[in-house]
Amino acid sequence: MKDKILQTSLTLFDQKGYRETSIQDIVDSLGVTKGTFYYYYSSKEELLKAICLAYIENLVQHQEEIIHHPAKTNTEKLHDIIYMLLDRIERERNEARIFFREMRNIKEEHIEEIKQIRTQFRLNYQKVLEDGIQNGEFKANAHPHVLALGILGITNWSYYWYSSEGEMSVEELTRLYLDFILHGIKS
């Protein structure tokens, strides 16, 4: 039942928005009582936090698997992380939209854990860039912190507009972004 509550909430939060979705809406969709909801979650905010936390923890776990692959270059790692993120945004569209759009509805005292994991995701990007600079794969005068933020800005907003049914596949978009990051757009 906990998973059903989560899945129903994902759909409702995505369709109606977090604030516009009530606990009553969730339980009505499931045909259960509010008591059932409260057995698993103490509040709607706790449910939102669980959704956001699961999404970012899963991303960091897969990102770190890519980073720790000993045979890959930093360029390959960068490609694979960008691909993984875009693919997740496409496959887990509801979770991605809720994470990026609704996280602001979690009170400051409850969001610190999510912010720490989100920061780790950025620092992992930064580490790949720093390692690539150190081994000569990337320009020595690159700014890994600023570049990591820029990459996140480019990729994260894909939740808003990207669809694999459009003109590009996830792989094509990944290559476009990676080429843009590594070479810019100047001929």
Rank of each mutant, 00 (worst) to 15 (best):
I98S: 01
V60A: 01
I114R: 05
E65Q: 10
K107P: 03
D179T: 15
H62T: 07
I67F: 05
Q134N: 09
L59A: 10
Q15F: 00
D28R: 12
K127V: 04
T155Y: 03
K49L: 06
T75Q: 09
Q63C: 07
I82G: 03
Q61T: 07
G150E: 09
P70A: 15
D131G: 01
H183W: 01
T21E: 02
P70T: 12
G166E: 11
E112N: 11
M1A: 08
S29P: 03
S164P: 08
Y177T: 07
Q7S: 12
R118S: 13
I56W: 04
L173Y: 04
K77R: 13
I56M: 08
D25G: 11
P144L: 08
I81R: 05
V170W: 02
R175Q: 14
H62F: 13
T73D: 06
Y125F: 15
H68T: 11
S43P: 02
D179Y: 10
Q7W: 04
L152H: 08
F100T: 11
E95Q: 13
K16Q: 15
R97K: 14
K34D: 10
L178H: 00
E108C: 00
T75S: 12
S42Q: 14
H62K: 14
I106L: 12
R118T: 11
N74M: 12
N124S: 15
D3V: 08
I117R: 04
E130G: 00
L47C: 06
L53M: 15
K72W: 06
Y83T: 10
E137V: 09
H145P: 02
E45P: 05
G17Y: 06
M168Q: 12
A50C: 03
E171D: 14
D28I: 04
Y40N: 05
K186F: 08
Q116S: 07
L10Q: 09
I151P: 02
V32E: 10
T8S: 13
G17W: 10
L59E: 12
H145I: 11
L149P: 00
L85D: 01
V27A: 11
D80C: 04
F37P: 07
E90A: 05
Y83C: 08
E130C: 01
V60E: 04
F100I: 07
D80L: 11
V27Q: 06
H69P: 00
Y38L: 11
L152E: 12
S164G: 10
P70Q: 13
L129Q: 04
E112G: 11
L86E: 08
Q120A: 07
K77Q: 10
E165R: 14
S169F: 01
L53C: 04
L30D: 06
T36K: 07
A96M: 01
E109R: 09
S42D: 15
L123E: 13
R122H: 06
V60Y: 04
G132K: 04
E64R: 06
F100N: 13
H79A: 06
E64K: 05
L48R: 05
Y38W: 10
S187T: 11
L129D: 08
